[in-house]
C-alpha cells in the first residue's frame, strides 16, 4: 500500500491514483482509435470464423475485399466464395516421362494466383532436378538449376507443389483452424484467419506452403481480377498460402493454369470420382506413384510415366 511513485515534476502519487490515471488514459486512447479507425479495419478485425459466417456476412466480406483491391490496385475485381460441387474430388497427374523442367508452369501459376513477384518471391511450384535413375533420392534434388537449354542429358525433372493430401498433416497442426480440407478435396487457407505461426509449413513433407514475409509485390497491370476467397486474392503480410489447384478455375470447370501453360502436356487434371476422367484413365493404365506415400498423407497428386 505504501509503495509511492515520484514523477518528474516531483508530485507524489499513490499506486491507486496512478492506476486510475493510467486506465483513464487507456480508455480515452481506445475511443480515439475507434473514432479515427476506418470501418473497414474494424470489420476485418471482427470478421467471424468462415463456417460461422452467414451468407449476408460473406457478401459484406466480398464487398469489403473488392473495395480494398479497387483502392489498392485501381482495378475492379470479382471475389468469389464459390463452393465445392457435388461429387467432385480433384486429382492431379504429372507425367515424369514428359516434363522437361522449363518452369513455364511456375510462372503461369504466379501470374494466375497473384503471388508476390519479389521481396518476397513466392512460388507454389518447385521444379526439382534429379539425376536419372535416382528418383528415390530426393536429398540430391536441385531446384536452382539454370542451363541454357532443357532438358539436360542425364537428368529428370519433377515439379512438386501442394499434393492436396486426403490426410493433410498441415491441417492437423493449425492451432486456429485457419486451414482445412474442402469437400472437393482441396486444402485451403482462410488468409483472414491465419495467424502466421507457420506450423503448417513445418508439418508439410512436400514444402507445399510458402509464407508472406512482407506485403506482396504484384504489378498492378498483371493483377488477375477473377479471384476466389480461398485462392488467388492478394494475400497480406504474415500469412501462409499454397497451391489450391487454381480453386477459382476448377470450381467453374476450367483447367488449372499450370495445366494450360505446360508446353509438353505433362500435367493432367480431373475428377477422381468420374470414371471417364483423364485422371482415372492414367491411374488405371499407367505406372503411377505418389510422393512419400509411406507418410500416410494420401496425396491426390499422381506422378506417372507414360513411356
Amino acid at each position: 500500500m505504501g509503495q509511492r511513485t515520484r514523477t518528474m515534476s516531483g508530485n507524489l502519487y499513490t499506486r491507486r491514483t496512478f492506476m486510475k490515471i493510467l486506465s483513464a488514459g487507456f480508455v480515452a486512447g481506445l475511443g480515439g482509435i475507434n473514432a479515427t479507425c476506418k470501418k473497414v479495419i474494424n470489420e476485418e478485425f471482427l470478421q467471424k470464423y468462415f463456417s460461422e459466417m452467414t451468407d449476408e456476412e460473406k457478401k459484406r466480406v466480398v464487398q469489403r475485399l473488392e473495395e480494398k483491391y479497387l483502392k489498392q490496385y485501381g482495378k475492379s475485381t470479382r471475389v468469389s466464395f464459390g463452393e465445392a460441387k457435388q461429387n467432385t474430388l480433384w486429382g492431379y497427374g504429372l507425367d515424369l516421362s514428359r516434363c522437361i523442367g522449363c518452369r513455364r508452369c511456375v510462372y503461369a501459376c504466379v501470374k494466375e494466383n497473384n503471388n508476390s513477384r519479389y521481396k518476397p518471391q513466392l512460388h507454389w511450384i518447385r521444379v526439382i532436378r534429379l539425376k536419372k535413375g535416382n528418383l528415390i533420392s530426393l536429398e540430391n534434388a536441385e531446384h536452382y538449376y539454370d542451363p541454357d537449354k532443357v532438358p539436360e542429358e542425364g537428368f529428370i525433372y519433377m515439379p512438386v507443389q501442394c499434393q492436396q493430401c486426403e490426410n493433410p498433416p498441415c491441417v492437423k497442426v493449425c492451432p486456429v483452424h485457419a486451414t482445412w480440407k474442402e469437400p472437393d478435396g482441396l486444402v485451403v487457407v482462410d488468409y483472414d484467419w491465419c495467424i502466421g505461426c507457420r506450423y503448417c509449413m513445418a508439418a508439410c513433407p512436400y514444402k507445399g506452403r510458402v509464407f508472406n514475409w512482407a506485403e506482396p509485390n504484384i504489378p498492378k497491370e498483371d493483377l488477375n481480377t477473377t479471384m476466389h476467397y480461398f485462392g488467388n486474392r492478394p494475400r497480406m503480410k504474415n500469412v501462409v498460402d499454397k497451391c489450391t489447384f487454381c480453386i477459382q478455375r476448377v470450381r467453374s470447370g476450367r483447367y488449372p493454369a499450370c495445366v494450360e501453360a505446360c508446353p509438353t502436356g505433362t500435367r493432367k487434371f480431373g475428377n477422381l470420382l468420374d470414371k471417364n476422367s483423364e485422371i482415372r484413365y492414367l491411374i488405371e493404365n499407367k505406372r503411377v506413384f505418389r510422393l512419400k506415400e509411406d507418410l500416410n498423407t494420401e496425396p491426390k497428386f499422381y506422378y506417372f510415366f507414360s513411356l
Binding site: K119, P120, H143, A214
Partner: peptide
C-alpha cells in the same frame, strides 16, 4: 522430335537481394 528450350529463371536463392528475410 520435341526441341529443347530455354528454361524460365530459377527462383531467387535465400541470399538474393530480391528476397526478403
Amino acid at each position: 522430335k520435341f526441341k529443347p528450350m530455354k528454361p524460365e529463371p530459377p527462383p531467387y536463392g535465400p541470399k538474393n537481394a530480391n528476397n526478403v528475410r
